[in-house]
Design a protein around this nucleic acid. Structure first.
Lengths: 257, 257
DNA sequence: CACAAAATCACAATTTTAGTGTTATAATGT
DNA sequence: ACATTATAACACTAAAATTGTGATTTTGTG
C-alpha cells in the first residue's frame, strides 16, 4: 500500500467515524506510529483534519465539507468512472464547458484524449493542467479568484460566458435531493447557470452520495439537463422522477470493482 | 554541478555565441555526449534552441526571443530592480493591472508585500502564484490561453478589461526605439492597450537592452505613460525626448552591483 | 555509393530523493 | 508525578532520476 492510498484511507475512516485513533490506524496499516504522525501532520496542513492527542478528528460541517483540497482526495474512483462516462458525449473538435469542482478537474484530464478540443472553464485546476497540452485550446473565463473553490467567479466570469457558446456544458453539484440540485454559494450557482445557458447541451455529473442533502440555493431541476450521469446508487425516486422526460440518465460502470 | 545548472549554462553560452558544439560542451562540463544530447533534446522541446548536427543554435529574432520560458531565466537581477522600483508606486489597498511577460511576473511577486491589494492580470504565472496568498484579491482576466506568452488574450480578455478599472497598470514591452514601444503580436498589443485604457495611471517597465529594436506593431508612445521605469543604460535620446513632458522617468538602482 | 561522424536506442550503473523506522528527548493530560 | 503521547534527529531502504556505455541506425559528403 502506497503512501497516498494510506492517506486516502485515513480520510475515508474519518468521514465514516468522525475520529480516528493513532495506535489504531498504525496497527491497521502495519506501519509505525511515526509514519501515521507524519500523515496526520500533512493532512492537517492541507486542512483536511485536526490532530488531537492520540489521533485526529474531522471538523465536520464547517469549512471542511466545501474545501477543495479535501474533495480533491475523495472518491477518486467514482469520479473517474463518471468522467469517463461523460467523455463519451464528447467528440474531437467539440467545444466544452467545464465548471468548478474536483469532479470537473478529473473530467478535464480525461478529455485531453479527445483532441482537438476547446475547453472553456473557470476551474483553476483544469487551466493549470490544460495549459501544457497541444491540441487543447484553453479558454479561461477569468473573474475573481476563490481559493475555497479554486476557481474564478463573478461578473467578469458571467459576462465572458454570455459571449461564448459551447457544444456541451458539464456541471457538477455538491448536493441534490429528489429532482433538485443545490449549491451553498450564490456566485457559484450563477456561474453554473450561465454555463448552462451558453451551451447547446447540458450534462450534470453527480455522485450518488450527494443525494439526500440540500444547500441554501437551488441550482437547477435535474430535468433541465439533457443528460445526468451518476453511479449505480442513484436513488430510485430520482431516476423514477426523470423517467419519461427528455433527460437521459447514464449510470457509470465501475472500473475498479 | 547539477543538471539544471548545466542546462542554464548551455543557454547562457548560446545567448553569447549564437551556437554551441556538442563535443565542446560535453568536454567543458565533463559529462558524456549522450547527456548533452539529452539536455539539448529537452531544451529543444522547451522551445529554447534548435538542434543541428554537431550542436545547437539559437533561433534569434523569431520564436525564441518571445519565448516565455527563456525570458523567465534571463536577467533576473535587472527585472527585480525594475520591479522593486515599480512597487514604490503602489500603496496597500490599491488595484493594479499587470500584463503578460516575465518581468511582470516578478512584479507580481514583489507586490505581494503591499497587501491588501487587488491584482488584475492575464498573466498565468502571476495567477498561479497569487492564488495562494491571503490579502491578495486576484482577478483573472480569462481569454484564450497562449502558451507562447503564458497568458490569456482575445475578445474575452478585452471585454473583461472594459468592465474593470484600476489605479495603475504596469505594462512591459519586448522592443523599443526612440520614443516608441513595439510588440510583434497583435492580440498582445490590444490587451496591453486595453489595460492602459482602464487604468487611472500607466507605467511602462522596460529593460534598457530592449531599446534599439522594433517589432511589427507599435504598442505605444512612451510619452503616453505617466511613468517609465528602466535601468541606467536607458538611451540618452529616449530620456531627452521625454524630458519636459508629463512622463516621469525612474531609473532603477541596481541591487546587486 | 561508401564511409566516417553523429545521433539514437536500450540497458546497466550510479546518484538522488522520498518514505519509513528507531531511538532519544520533550511535552502533555490526568 | 508519571504514564502516554508527541517531536526531533538520524539511519536505513526502496524507488526514481540521472548518467554512461556500447550497439545500432541515420546523416552528410566526397
Amino acid at each position: 500500500m502506497k503512501r497516498e492510498e494510506r492517506r486516502q484511507e485515513i480520510i475515508n475512516l474519518l468521514v465514516e467515524s468522525r475520529a480516528v485513533e493513532l495506535d489504531d490506524i498504525a496497527a491497521r496499516f502495519g506501519v509505525s506510529k511515526m509514519t501515521i504522525h507524519r500523515d496526520l501532520d500533512d493532512l492537517e496542513r492541507a486542512g483536511v483534519l485536526r490532530k488531537v492527542r492520540g489521533g485526529a478528528t474531522i471538523d465536520a460541517g464547517t469549512q471542511f465539507e466545501s474545501d477543495f483540497r479535501f474533495r480533491e482526495l475523495q472518491e477518486a474512483d467514482v469520479k473517474r468512472a463518471l468522467a469517463e462516462t461523460a467523455a463519451e458525449l464528447v467528440e474531437p473538435g467539440m467545444t466544452v464547458m467545464i465548471n468548478d469542482g474536483s469532479m470537473a478537474s478529473v473530467l478535464g484530464d480525461v478529455l485531453a484524449d479527445k483532441k482537438p478540443i476547446t475547453i472553456i472553464t473557470n476551474n483553476a485546476a483544469i487551466m493549470e493542467r490544460a495549459k501544457g497540452l497541444s491540441g487543447v485550446t484553453l479558454i479561461g473565463l477569468g473573474g475573481v479568484y476563490s481559493s475555497k473553490f479554486n476557481a474564478y467567479f463573478g461578473i467578469v466570469t458571467e459576462e465572458a460566458l454570455s459571449r461564448l457558446r459551447a457544444d456541451i456544458a458539464f456541471i457538477s453539484a455538491p448536493a441534490a435531493s429528489g429532482r433538485l440540485a443545490y449549491h451553498m454559494d450564490e456566485a457559484v450557482v450563477r456561474t453554473k447557470r450561465a454555463m448552462m445557458a451558453s451551451s447547446r447541451q447540458t450534462c450534470l455529473m453527480i455522485n450518488s452520495r450527494r443525494f439526500g442533502h440540500t444547500a441554501l440555493h437551488v441550482l437547477a431541476d435535474l430535468a433541465d439537463f439533457d443528460t445526468v450521469i451518476s453511479d449505480k446508487n442513484l436513488p430510485h425516486d430520482t431516476s423514477a422522477a426523470l423517467d419519461g422526460g427528455k433527460t437521459v440518465v447514464h449510470i457509470a460502470r465501475e472500473t475498479t470493482p
